[in-house]
Simulated scan of single mutants.
Amino acid sequence: MYSTLTRASVTAAAAAGLILTACGSAAAHVTVDAPGAAQGGYSVATFRVPTESDTASTTALTVTIPGVRSVRTEPLPGWTAKVEKNPAGEVTAVTWTADPGNAGVGPGQFQRFVVSIGPLPKEHEVSFPATQSYSDGSVVRWDQPAAADGSEPERPAPSLHLAEASADGHSHGGSDTEAAAPESTDQTARWLAGIGLAFGLFAVALGLGSVFRGRRP
């Protein structure tokens, strides 16, 4: 009985661990989320920035913007945001820097940086290459495009898939006014983790069922 129960527990733990590991890997990337974002429309984009270092804090983030006319940053206590523009008046980058006295985003933590942006390019996908700076002077660039076979690179650039605009010039799934701030992408990770836990409990139940059936005369 002990042997059967142990095998069931190990199977459950392994299954849940695989799912949770996949969630953790995705969560370690700098990502962008903008529900309802559409070509030619306005949206609110949230950049989620985790600190991967075990010894240093994230103290600055620069995001390259694809030449849009309007970008407004959401106030973030302890951080200063700077919007850069080209001679044509288009926004080309936004940089957030930790204020003096702010240690930044510590190891094991993450921070959300939010902007209102538009009109978005009339493209199916738009990338926002990012540069993450640490308190020890190290710099990580999130600027790699997806591989031709669809696999994810080590440091992928944050990107958005944009819905197409309708024939009348309005956007599907978007709005020409500023959108409400999106929910955290952490909800997806928590949802997947819940699936992993449920799967593990189901595997344990199957193991216990096998034990009880084996004990029947």
Rank of each mutant, 00 (worst) to 15 (best):
M1F: 06
S9W: 08
V10R: 13
V10S: 12
T11I: 12
A15H: 10
A16T: 04
I19H: 07
L20Q: 11
G24V: 12
D33M: 02
D33R: 04
T51Q: 12
D54W: 05
T55W: 06
S57C: 05
S70P: 00
R72P: 00
R72I: 04
T73G: 01
E74M: 08
P75W: 00
P77K: 04
A88T: 06
G89M: 02
A93F: 00
G104D: 02
P107N: 07
F110D: 11
F113H: 06
F113I: 08
V115R: 03
P121D: 10
E123C: 09
E123I: 13
H124P: 15
E125I: 11
T131G: 09
T131P: 08
D136A: 13
G137P: 07
V139C: 11
V139S: 11
V140T: 14
W142V: 03
D143H: 09
D149N: 14
G150D: 09
S151Y: 00
E152V: 09
S159M: 11
S171C: 11
A180E: 13
A180V: 12
A181Y: 02
A181L: 02
A181D: 04
E183S: 15
T188M: 06
G196I: 05
L197W: 14
L197E: 10
G200K: 14
L201A: 15
G207W: 09
S210I: 13
V211A: 06
R215N: 10
R216W: 14
P217F: 03
